[in-house]
Design a binder for these strands. Structure first.
Length: 272
DNA sequence: TAACACACCTGTTGGC
DNA sequence: TGCCAACAGGTGTGTT
């Protein structure tokens, strides 16, 4: 389940491999994943040079100069780089070949991932239309705006954070971790959080996602980086996947409940 | 406008 | 052993 740290790890792997490569062929084996049109994409990418690979929230951005190719990995999307193009395997849906014989492969067992191709000038409007919140770093993720956003919603805090509107990059794993770290119960109404709690939550989000990036993401189920390597963040998870295990803080068994239809891990003693 | 339910999709798991 | 239903979850869309 790629969340911000996993997507950033993929970006860091792909960027030096792809920078400067010129696209010679695009094969799309599952056209519905290209929301802006598979045929147009396959045609328009030809001859374009990858300037860089960037990231915004959970989106990967392949910078082509005048245009960008936007990828969202959703649940199980992955990119693999091949020095020499190989025969596609099952679940490999997009093949991007380069003039030097190398290939970028998009693989996605559940076909949830998406690709969009748009002018670079439209990128800001694109993210605005998605109501994508700020990156979870000190400079952009401001306490005042975060507190105001929490205060406007009576929703449980967990599904609100998953919306990406108040802050970009959290998914089901990291949201459980940050709520545990901030000692906030996931079902608690967002507007009921005090200013102090909002500050603790913001701090937990910034620190936890930064640690996730530093550790190369967490490998739960199937996530791997561009080289097929696993991350190590899963070794430090305090509640996610720890059902029945003692809470590292108070020793009470971690429980698994449903919040907003999502599996949610919580310590009922220290998360109020 | 907010909140919620459901669809998308397929491999895994557990029950019978 | 084989079959089937439930489950996993990020985001978009439809409904209330």
């Amino acid at each position: 389940m790629p969340e911000l740290p996993e997507v950033e790890t993929v970006r860091r792997g792909l960027s030096p491999l792809l920078r400067g490569k010129v696209i010679s062929q695009v094969i799309i084996l599952y056209p519905p994943m290209v929301r802006t049109g598979a045929d147009a994409l396959a045609h328009d990418l030809l001859g374009q040079k990858i300037q860089d690979v960037q990231r915004r929230g959970k989106y990967l951005i392949f910078d082509l100069g005048q245009h960008v190719l936007l990828s969202h990995l959703r649940m199980e999307g992955k990119f693999f780089f091949q020095e020499v193009a190989q025969e596609p395997l099952k679940h490999q849906h997009v093949l991007i070949d380069f003039e030097d014989g190398s290939r970028l492969v998009y693989q996605d067992v559940r076909k949830f991932g998406t690709l969009d191709y748009l002018p670079k000038a439209d990128l800001a409007a694109y993210f605005q239309s998605k109501k994508l919140g700020p990156e979870p770093v000190e400079e952009t993720f401001l306490l005042k705006e975060f507190r105001e956003g929490l205060g406007k919603s009576r929703k449980p805090v967990k599904p609100l954070l998953l919306e990406q509107r108040l802050v970009a990059g959290l998914g089901n794993i990291y949201v459980d971790e940050v709520l545990w770290k901030a000692r906030i119960h996931p079902t608690r109404s967002a507007s009921s959080l005090s200013a102090q709690k909002a500050g603790q939550l913001r701090r937990a989000i910034i620190e936890t996602l930064a640690e996730g990036v530093a550790r190369g993401g967490s490998t739960i189920r199937t996530y791997k980086n561009a080289f097929g390597q696993a991350g190590t963040m899963q070794e430090t998870l305090k509640v996610y996947g720890q059902e029945g295990q003692p809470c590292p803080r108070c020793g009470h068994p971690i429980e698994k409940i449903k919040v907003g239809g999502r599996g949610t891990h919580v310590c009922p003693r220290c998360q109020k």
